[in-house]
């Protein structure tokens, strides 16, 4: 079954709109609904929207949570999130979150991923 264009466009616009909305509660909405979706495309769009916010809480969602953002099981979602992080004009907050994750996170896989992305961002 294929997704009709109007529904796909609605979801895309809602996620983009919530990413632009300055209300802090939008982060939890995106995390709860978007990053937990079973659809890769929705998780990918949500992760990118959270990265574009470039806020501590939003970046934490996509960096420190196992199975979300750079730690997503889907390579496409993980790579898209990393690409969006590399595209940030101001990377300072992202680097801070990555450093904290590398140093303090309990899960080794998450720490390794954060280390790799941090290295990439340092080189870019």
């Amino acid at each position: 079954m294929t997704v009709d264009k109007k529904t796909a466009k609605n979801v895309t616009n809602i996620i983009e709109g919530l990413g632009m909305n300055s209300n802090p509660e939008t982060i939890s909405i995106l995390e709860d609904v978007g990053t937990n979706s079973k659809v890769d495309a929705i998780r990918e769009m949500t992760s990118r929207a959270l990265v574009r916010k470039n806020e501590h809480d939003a970046l934490k969602v996509v960096i420190t949570n196992k199975g979300k953002g750079i730690n997503d099981m889907s390579t496409i979602v993980a790579m898209s999130t990393i690409n969006e992080l590399l595209s940030l004009s101001d990377k300072s907050e992202a680097m801070r979150v990555l450093s904290d994750t590398v140093e303090m996170h309990t899960d080794e896989e998450v720490r390794d991923n954060a280390r790799s992305v941090k290295a990439l961002m340092a080189l870019s």
């Binding site: 079954m1 294929t2 997704v3 009709d4 529904t7 796909a8 609605n10 979801v11 895309t12 616009n13 809602i14 996620i15 983009e16 709109g17 919530l18 632009m20 909305n21 209300n23 509660e25 939008t26 909405i29 995106l30 709860d32 609904v33 978007g34 979706s37 079973k38 659809v39 929705i42």
Partner: peptide, 29 residues
């Protein structure tokens, strides 16, 4: 729904409901 209208939305419960409904519709397809 336009991204512009959602970016100016103040009622977050409504925004949550809007995203949940549309994601559910997307996932159903």
């Amino acid at each position: 729904i336009s991204a512009k209208s959602v970016s100016k939305m103040e009622d977050m419960s409504m925004a949550r409901q809007l995203l949940s409904d549309n994601v559910a519709m997307y996932e159903a397809m």
